[in-house]
Design a protein around this nucleic acid. Structure first.
Lengths: 164, 164
DNA sequence: ACCGTATACTTGAGCGGTAAAGCATCTCGT
DNA sequence: ACGAGATGCTTTACCGCTCAAGTATACGGT
């Protein structure tokens, strides 16, 4: 009985009525939890934020290890302004470089440096393992597959389909 | 052949090797997509950010419509500093008030004002509907249930269980 | 009674994102 | 050829969060 009345009177104003789908609140909670964990691990081990890591990763996926900023923005689901800042940080760290496009003077590629590739390789190893741990400790292979499929619908086109 | 070489040379440095579980990337994408949509809708219709709404909601759930800041932080999965700032905004808008605790001078309750309750009621209606739309247009009832259950494991305790 | 530690909250610095405006360059129709 | 619009990028101003330090209060042991 030491804590001050966190829940002062058990009988009181009626709260609540309907609830949103559990899936929604669990999505929020799950994302927050997991994302924090991953971000913290990445920072500690490699000095990268989750998004910085994703940048390196996307560049790694790309041919020549380079991408236009606008494409990067699209893949990371952030705005172009955000990309500019993110890359500024990575450039400062020497992990990414800017490169001009011969055929279009407007575009500036973001390109992995040699150091960037090394950083990506080592971060990727640890991160992948980490992610897999988080998931495989909670889900069976088939659950994982199902979960992935279900979640993928959330970012699909503009839903709707069912309504019309 | 108009766009500048987004993918300059089709045959190039070998990228990629292993992939993280789809569930992880889909979680990130799905969360980003959905969360943006909800936040935008809430802002437009009620001038509330998603987190501000969650504050009102949590206060609405609580007895007397009040909560200690520290409890609020825990429920929203943000830090105490974040709560202070969030509440500052809501206090400015007159939706929340501060109230002292008789038994412990350290604690400051956040308490819904009458206006706050009204705002919550109307925002809640619209938001619930919106959320339900988003989900029911993509999932059947049983899928929804399954998804909720799977996602809930992400924020459960500290995983592990399976490993030991 | 008093000191040490724990707890509740606020504050300052900084980061990472957004939206919107601005600038440069490209492209297309006439 | 040139002007209108589209496109790629950066910048500005802001927001909302974190971390860490600072302040105030409470509590338990001696």
């Amino acid at each position: 009985m030491s804590r001050p009345t966190t829940t002062p009177a058990r009988r009181a104003k009626a709260p609540v009525r309907e609830r949103p789908p559990d899936a929604w609140v669990e999505l929020l909670r799950g994302h927050a939890t997991l994302t924090r964990r991953m971000d913290a691990a990445l920072r500690e081990l490699h000095g990268l934020s989750l998004n910085e890591y994703e940048v390196l990763l996307q560049l790694g996926f790309a041919d020549e290890g380079r991408l236009r900023r606008v494409d990067l923005a699209e893949r990371l689901l952030i705005t172009q302004g955000g990309v500019t800042r993110l890359l500024a940080g990575l450039e400062r760290k020497g992990l990414v470089d800017r490169a001009n496009c011969e055929s279009d003077a407007r575009v500036v590629y973001a390109e992995l440096t040699a150091q960037g590739r090394r950083k990506l390789a080592s971060a990727r190893r640890a991160h992948l393992e980490d992610v897999r741990d988080q998931f495989s400790s909670r889900f069976s292979a088939s659950e994982l597959k199902a979960l992935g499929e279900l979640l993928s619908r959330l970012s699909d086109a503009d839903a709707g389909a069912a309504a019309c």
